[in-house]
Nucleic acid binder design. Sequence first.
DNA 1: GAAACCAAATCGTCATACTTTTGGGCTGTG
DNA 2: CACAGCCCAAAAGTATGACGATTTGGTTTC
Lengths: 231, 231
Amino acid sequence: MEIQGLPGRLLDELGPAIASGEIPEGAVLRGEELEDRFGVSRTVVREAVRILEGMRLVASRRRVGITVQPKSVWDVFDPLVIRWRLAGADRSAQLRSLGSLRVAVEPAAAALAAAHASDDDRRRLSALAVELTMSARAADLTTFLRHDIDFHATVLRASGNEMFAHLGDTVGAVLTGRTEYHLMPHQPEPYAIRLHREVAEAICAGDAVRAEQGMRTIVTGALEELNQQLG
Amino acid sequence: MEIQGLPGRLLDELGPAIASGEIPEGAVLRGEELEDRFGVSRTVVREAVRILEGMRLVASRRRVGITVQPKSVWDVFDPLVIRWRLAGADRSAQLRSLGSLRVAVEPAAAALAAAHASDDDRRRLSALAVELTMSARAADLTTFLRHDIDFHATVLRASGNEMFAHLGDTVGAVLTGRTEYHLMPHQPEPYAIRLHREVAEAICAGDAVRAEQGMRTIVTGALEELNQQLG
DNA sequence: GAAACCAAATCGTCATACTTTTGGGCTGTG
DNA sequence: CACAGCCCAAAAGTATGACGATTTGGTTTC
């Protein structure tokens, strides 16, 4: 998943710094300065910068340097950008944005999944719903989180829409994030778990309406909880 | 918007070729081969490849080369990837995916816009609804398209959600695409236009439910029409 | 036949030199 | 003093040669 090599190391420094706003919009970096600062060659700096340019975090112009772009042009759907923002200062803004996105997308995905899921997907969802219940009862937050992520990713993938499917990792990052930063009840809510079972059953039964409803309740609930926690 | 310089030129060749499937999954390119084929230096090839790697279209490994990644790991939200796919062989798959995405996102955006739009946004939406009506009546498809794109982008931006806002360009690409490839009625449908006016009014009035409903009707209509055209 | 080893292929990194663009200062003039 | 145009230097863009690192696949050896 990560970009590797020395450019990757550079990226791990610069990306979060820019995404968190530590290096503000309009700031100008010089290639040579980066070479010195990180003790790497021109080649490495240029390739790292090219990648950042691909994400629209920076733009490089002759005679002026590498300027940090305004947030409004960033590729906010890039998985790395999302992760960097989640780890940094505007974590809460990012969580809010993603929360709304989930409310829009996941119910639609659930409805599509009810129509298009493969038998394998349906089996997997049933199994995950059970495991979710068990790990919640055992108060095992780590495996609960793992299964929760898996559940939502499976629904998104089962929708048959490649773009929805791709949001699986992103949703995973959100769930991980809110657990890591203690934005979650320490005990998973029994009601939320019942809803996951409900959604799994609906998808298995091919009931698009019920699947969509259930999922909508889950994600709007998560969003409300988030808004409460963040004020 | 474009990546520039020689790497950009390379990208314009390789990106579409990969995104369209012309260079299939698993294919292996060698850096030196690309140097020869395009008559550029290692530097340029490497930077272009880095960008493609950032989009997860390819992965570069020692001793083996630059391998085209399976479609499932591509950054399908990257604007360039979307454009390349729209221009190439799986245009219809891409249009379908984007259609579903619009159905999920745009109604939610309209609802949020009704709550959060600035006065300026509201004025702009009203104006666009009028201009839309006029250019439709004049059968001026070019300006109609321009205003249509502007309308949807404005709603997405007015939602106040940066991720929704970012989909404005993408939706624009979809609308442009389906016009260019004659996947649209040559005369804009009067009913669809009435709906745009309805949405604009609802957002101006702060009526989230009505805005969401209207927008949902618009985008589901567009999706159905698309499915009909594509069989 | 299996395991260890070696060699070739290819990317990764570095150092350096040259080219191209462009912003800002300098100069000269009205 | 204001303004226009020219010129220069600064920074990114490109090219190239050399070397290092790593993986693969065949070959040798036991």
